[in-house]
């Protein structure tokens, strides 16, 4: 991790400062002493596979878990010394369901607003605002039990926003949302950040969502493997990526090692991803050098997926899509 990230650049104030934070569950080292800063008004993303330690870290920052060692300061309050101060400053949308499904949508919101000391007048205004945002205004007097999974998710997000927290924690906020709602939510989050100067800390599996973040922290096995802006992370991989599907991977790999020693590549299932500086001129050279060996080829810009593959040697796409959708029954892959 570049040391620049440990010390905020001049003029940027760190709103979350995390130092050597560690959490062990019996034998499992879920979080292995991580340190990072999140700046004021930043949209900060935690990106990592299942079991990486994203939720554990977020729960420690939100005072729901006591760290095994290390400390963090959230909005000026220590998570071990001043939990109440932290709680007053944050909003949290959990990865797992956390609504009272016997109450109506409106009752869930009102319960939350009262616990956070939102005045009745503010509550009336804001509940309409957030419920319209997540398109549940017409369903506000319905019992949550009658809601679909996506509707519940939207209600949880509305609830997390209603007390206008200084820092908003979102643990996989778009889990189970349809593409249209997802897009809406992102528009709103970006608006909140800009207009209310809110600091947003989220976790995600979705590479395209990570692109919205100001900075991304890639985490794997409880450790930070990279922390930078999406653009700079992609630079790690090179300017262009050529993905080829060889007929015989071992033969093509041997040829690549022989002819193009300077070209780095990673293996990803049936594909090889080559990192090159000028793909447009390199592609014809590659195809001429390996006649008849390649079934298909794509030239593209690097994605965060490539970054992850580059950093960990594993592909994000190995994660079965279903594991992200069935909340509460997630199998952990390592």
């Amino acid at each position: 991790m570049p040391s620049a990230d440990l010390f905020p650049a001049a003029g940027r104030r760190a709103l979350i400062t995390c130092r050597e934070l560690k959490k062990n569950f019996k034998k499992i080292e879920a979080v292995r002493g991580i340190s990072f800063d999140v700046y004021e008004e930043e949209l900060f993303g935690f990106l990592g596979p299942n079991g990486a330690g994203k939720t554990t870290t977020m729960n420690m920052l939100a005072t729901l878990l006591t760290p095994s060692s290390g400390d963090a300061i959230v909005a000026g309050h220590s998570i071990s010394m001043d939990r109440d101060g932290v709680r007053r400053s944050i909003g949290m949308v959990f990865q797992d369901p956390s609504l009272d499904d016997r109450l109506t949508a409106e009752e869930n919101l009102r319960f939350h607003a009262q616990l956070y000391g939102v005045s009745p007048a503010d509550y009336r205004r804001r509940s309409e605002e957030v419920l319209r945002l997540v398109e549940l205004w017409d369903r506000r007097f319905d019992i949550v039990k009658t809601f679909s999974g996506g509707m519940r998710r939207r209600l949880e997000i509305a609830r997390g926003l209603i007390h206008h927290p200084q820092v908003l924690f979102l643990d996989e906020p778009t889990l189970g949302l349809d593409p249209q709602t997802r897009a809406h939510l992102w528009d709103y989050l970006l608006k909140l950040k800009k207009e209310r100067h809110m600091t947003i800390f989220l976790t995600t599996h979705q590479m395209n969502e990570a692109e919205y973040c100001d900075r991304i922290c890639v985490i794997d096995h409880g450790q930070i493997v990279a922390l930078d802006t999406p653009a700079k992370l992609k630079k790690l991989v090179g300017d262009d990526v050529i993905s080829v599907r060889p007929k015989d991977p071992s033969r093509v790999k041997a040829e690549l090692d022989r002819i193009f020693q300077q070209v780095k590549y990673v293996e990803d299932g049936a594909y090889l991803h080559l990192r090159v500086s000028d793909g447009h001129t390199f592609l014809p050279i590659l195809l001429t050098a390996l006649p008849g060996e390649i079934e298909s080829v794509t030239l593209r810009e690097p994605t965060l997926d490539d970054v992850f593959l580059h950093l960990t040697g594993r592909s994000f796409r190995d994660e079965p899509e279903t594991s992200k959708m069935s909340r509460g029954f997630r199998g952990h892959r390592h």
Binding site: L64, R87, F94, D96, P97, L115, G117
Partner: peptide, 14 residues
């Protein structure tokens, strides 16, 4: 069991 306790425990109340 149903996760609602998290919502209560993360709130700024004693």
């Amino acid at each position: 069991e149903f996760g609602f306790l998290k919502e209560i425990m993360v709130a700024p109340v004693s």
